[in-house]
Design a protein around this nucleic acid. Structure first.
Lengths: 239, 239
DNA sequence: CGGGTGTTTGACCCAGATCAACTGGGGTGG
DNA sequence: CCACCCCAGTTGATCTGGGTCAAACACCCG
């Protein structure tokens, strides 16, 4: 059940059986969420964390003009809001982009982990720092990359993140994301995302059709994106 | 010495005398860094964390074309790289924008804190989550705000962050940042930052001259920025 | 077969980039 | 003490990547 989260952690450091059990025991509940539901609203008081078991979620903020910025996508195996454990409320909303299955981990149980298991605590801390690293890379995309590079970069990032939890291979992956959603990740309009996808397709780099990303030329795609996976911290390290 | 960091934490939760002492004991060394020095390079192995005592630093990433994106500014009282404690190396560089005084906290001493003081551990964890919240707000600026709103927003953010550590009041604050630096924070060019500053000045909102930000109309500035300080988590909360 | 959601394309527009020249203060060395 | 330079800021002229507006199109699904 928490297997994908374990895969994610074990891509970065060893997790012992006692730690694994503590994580399993941290889950109080599992439930399903329909697509397009706002799961957590900014400002609301938080007492549990949400582990995404299946589906796609995002963190987003709105401006008064109705414009929206997605600050991160969450795939299966991600905690959508582990940072709520220390923040106590969030500065952004969390939305289910597809039907999702989630597991709930009450803050008290995570607090117990911090009292008893320092290494696992550091791994949970690491996990929130990884989200921050993704935020930084997106800041670079939003501030400096061209539309083409932004789209290409997102595809590269998701290939790796989904690959870690067994949901992508070198040929591609399923991605239930509309072009409007993508635009809200990338600081673009859906019209321009559409044109950019066409350019990537005609350039023989990637194809995105029928909710599937097909990598046509991985090397070329990564070059177009100036993609460097270091920010995903895939090296096995004692943390 | 670590007083400004304590001010920053105490704006969010109570810190007891034992915790305060543990933080003081975590510092191994204090040193000075000249302006424009890259203090930490992406990828380098980290064994200490850097607490900024005085001056201005930033985290940044470069693209091949020589373009640079600053992902966060650090003011006195901020840890520039507390996240290196769990990440072990960074995905970005850290640069001293002005002459800086820094204190070093070896990872082993922070690890001791995680073994012995769970609440203080959560406060340090909180501190890295606060950086992530700032990243998210910058993503919103970079992705969706106009140039005018971006500049205004940065001035609002810094007024609050500097105010917490006693370096700003309602009239304004000192800011040793070139227009080129600002452009690299905001995803703009220095030319356009210059024009935007003129517009803000002539609109009677803020003035930025001689390295000082003078707030002329705080309400108006915050409206222009759509500034909402919630993401800085200024509420006192048990964390 | 109709309506809703997502995609595609065309025509035109504009915020911010680019390029280039000039100002102005502060440091420095002759 | 002045001449020079360097760096930051300022301004004008022009360009362009991506936005806006609007109209098809293509699926589903009921």
């Amino acid at each position: 059940m928490i297997d994908r989260f374990l895969m994610k952690l074990r891509a970065r450091d060893e997790i012992g059986p006692e730690e694994e059990q503590a994580l399993r025991d941290a889950i109080s509940d599992v439930r399903d969420v329909p697509a397009d539901q706002v799961v957590i609203r900014a400002g609301q008081e938080m007492t549990v964390c949400t582990l995404l078991l299946d589906g796609l979620m995002c963190r987003y903020k709105d401006l008064a003009g109705g414009q929206r910025q997605i600050s991160e996508l969450h795939v299966a195996g991600d905690f959508a809001d582990l940072h709520s454990f220390t923040l106590k409320r969030l500065d952004h909303n969390i939305l289910a982009l597809t039907p999702c299955r989630i597991a709930l981990a009450p803050h008290e149980r995570i607090a117990e982990i911090t009292e008893r298991l320092p290494h696992l605590t550091r791994m949970l801390w690491f996990s929130t720092n990884l989200d921050a690293a993704i935020h930084r890379e997106w800041e670079l995309s939003l501030g400096r990359r061209t539309a083409l590079a932004r789209v290409a970069h997102l595809f590269c990032e998701l290939q790796i993140r989904l690959g870690i939890v067994g949901l992508a291979d070198e040929t591609g992956y399923e991605l239930k994301l509309t072009q409007t959603d993508m635009a809200e990740c990338l600081g673009l309009t859906s019209v321009h995302v559409n044109r950019t996808l066409k350019e990537l397709r005609e350039g023989g780099l990637v194809e995105f059709r029928n909710w599937r990303v097909t990598i046509l030329d991985q090397r070329g795609l990564e070059q177009a994106a100036e993609f460097n996976p270091d920010y995903l911290y895939l090296d096995q390290q004692p943390r």
